[in-house]
Design a protein around this nucleic acid. Structure first.
Lengths: 203, 203
DNA sequence: AGTTATACTTGACAACTGTAAAGTTATAAC
DNA sequence: GTTATAACTTTACAGTTGTCAAGTATAACT
């Protein structure tokens, strides 16, 4: 009505609304109608820009991976700080995306092969990093690098994903910066113990 | 047709089919129709036994909590074995139920207050156990019992819930007994390090 | 000015889903 | 054996959801 036509802007608005909807409700739970309303667009217009629900999701995911900053793919030199670092990354780079990951694990989705490959590569790079640090003598010999990586994944995502558990156990919301700091320090502390740096246990 | 009428058996069949469906698909994802087919029953018959979808879920959940064995609510005396114990419990007491817990965390469900209360109590009992063990000198003073409990929750559920991550990182399925044993031992190992029992680090 | 490509709207529909209500058969009590 | 109750079936419906096809308005190009 009062707005001038603008294809690019409309497309972006749809994409943004779709991101929110998909990340909050998962694929099957997401409603095209809801996306349309949120983007202030007739829902049929979405089919003018995207072939369908699935392609829309793919578009959202593609844009996601383009946008993430470089520092997120770096590793700290000391394995003691690996967990803390990965936790910070998870906190910063859109927690809602993490939530979507969970749905991906549960729903039987249009398993994007390219997407699965990317995830595998990312995880494998964590394992490789851990292995190299073990060879450098920074990680105890008797701890399996793969299992360590899995453990770190667990510790750096679980409290954020299962906000209700975090709330029930600690009383804080996982979005609370105070909790995030406490958890960061905690991760460093137990990392120090696990990796055998007993001299790190100050503060 | 060839079957004799039997209310109790039919009810059980519906409940069993509902359990599978709910645990695998979540509340919104679960289909009454699918439950009916799986129970070999006309779907309208379900409404003869239960008021509706929600009550059916409640019935399933109620029966669940009745059925679980006592040993699952006990705690090992040594905190070093707490993680391992909780992991074993999670492995044994129907992994599909764990999956349902995840859906509960994501979906905005008919948040059964009684159910939430039970969960809170269970988690709080873990915290209390950890606290008492800290007071007994079995847990380092500088580690927050609440955060420790949260960490243990993460470590004992994450690999089971996110089977795809486990697969991508370790190459094994989380249902693989071999993996479960490896992870059990790993949990004990890092627990020993975290809790400062360096003498426990034999095999 | 007129053709055309593109942005957007309208109307419709077919599949699916939870649920109600009425109808039908078997079982058990009298 | 009649009857009441409970087990099961059939028919039906209203709401939702993804998608299509056809129409209209606007901007761009010739």
């Amino acid at each position: 009505m009062g707005e001038i036509r603008n294809a690019e802007r409309t497309r972006k608005r749809i994409l943004e609304a779709a991101r929110k909807e998909f990340f909050e409700k998962g694929y099957t739970g997401a409603r095209i109608e809801a996306i349309a309303v949120n983007a202030d667009v007739k829902k049929q217009l979405i089919y003018h820009y995207f072939k369908g629900k699935e392609e829309l999701l793919v578009a959202v995911l593609d844009q996601m991976t383009v946008e993430l900053p470089e520092w997120t793919t770096q590793f700290p030199s000391d394995p003691v700080h690996t967990a803390e670092h990965r936790f910070q990354v998870n906190c910063q780079t859109r927690m809602d995306f993490l939530k979507f990951t969970v749905w991906e694990a549960l729903e039987e989705q249009p398993q994007q092969n390219s997407r699965k490959k990317r995830r595998t590569e990312a995880l494998q790079s964590y394992v490789d990093d851990m292995k190299s640090k073990q060879e450098a003598g920074l990680v105890p010999e008797d701890l399996d690098p793969e299992l360590l990586t899995l453990a770190i994944s667990a510790l750096t995502t679980y409290p954020l994903i299962f906000g209700d558990v975090t709330k029930m156990v600690t009383g804080s919301e996982p979005t609370d910066p105070q909790f995030q700091e406490k958890w960061s320090k905690f991760l460093t502390k137990i990392s120090a113990r696990i990796f055998g740096k007993d001299d790190f246990m100050n503060e």
